[in-house]
């Protein structure tokens, strides 16, 4: 933050200051949305390699942070397009119900922490809305990180049925999150 007020430091030094200040935040922001390390690293690299070429480092800190998170958001949207297999999908269609990145001013310069807290709250809310066996299978698989075999054993069902159950649970949670009852 303070760097913005200084007298024009060497461009490369300034760029590395920006990198050091934001690489962890951008990575966490991306990781929270793609869920795995290899893809999060690729996308993080894309954001900063693009910044080397295009980011105007003389802008003030707020603008720079906004720029970085906007580029990160676009990289995430492009990433999920590969899973949707649709040639052209707008960001808003790709991510219905996804909050845009927290405006920096309101998040106190730490947008990723605020979004982590939101995600955790959302998970708890989500699990509460699911029927018992759906909630249970997701808890075992995600919260307790059990394998399919272990999950099946705990629930007293076959492995095949555990896979079907987790599939249906995710389907219900992802597609109709507002509906709370199911036979």
């Amino acid at each position: 933050m303070a760097a913005a007020d200084r007298e024009s430091p060497a461009p490369r030094g300034r760029f590395e200051e920006i990198y050091d200040a934001h690489v962890v935040g951008i990575y966490r922001y991306i990781y929270a949305r793609v869920g795995n390390r290899p893809d999060a690293e690729d996308l993080t690299a894309q954001v900063f390699m693009r910044a080397v070429e295009q980011l105007d480092t003389t802008r003030d800190e707020g603008q720079i942070v906004s720029w970085l998170y906007r580029v990160g958001q676009n990289a995430i949207a492009d990433y999920w397009r590969a899973f949707y297999r649709l040639p052209l999908v707008g960001t808003e269609q790709v991510a219905p119900g996804w909050e845009p990145p927290e405006p920096v001013e309101r998040a106190g310069g730490d947008p990723e922490r605020a979004s982590d807290e939101r995600a955790t709250a959302r998970v708890e809310r989500l699990l509460r809305t699911l029927p018992e066996n759906y909630r249970r299978v997701l808890e075992l698989r995600f919260l307790q990180r059990l394998s399919v075999a272990e999950t099946a054993e705990r629930m007293g069902i076959s492995r095949g049925n555990a896979k079907v159950l987790q599939y249906r649970a995710l389907r219900k949670a992802a597609l109709v999150p507002e509906v709370t009852t199911d036979g």
Partner: peptide, 19 residues
């Protein structure tokens, strides 16, 4: 394989990180 599963995948990614 389809848009519905992509939604599931994205939710799973979010769940995985949040947990």
């Amino acid at each position: 394989t389809d848009g519905d599963e992509a939604e599931m995948a994205r939710l799973a990614a979010e769940l995985s990180v949040a947990t």
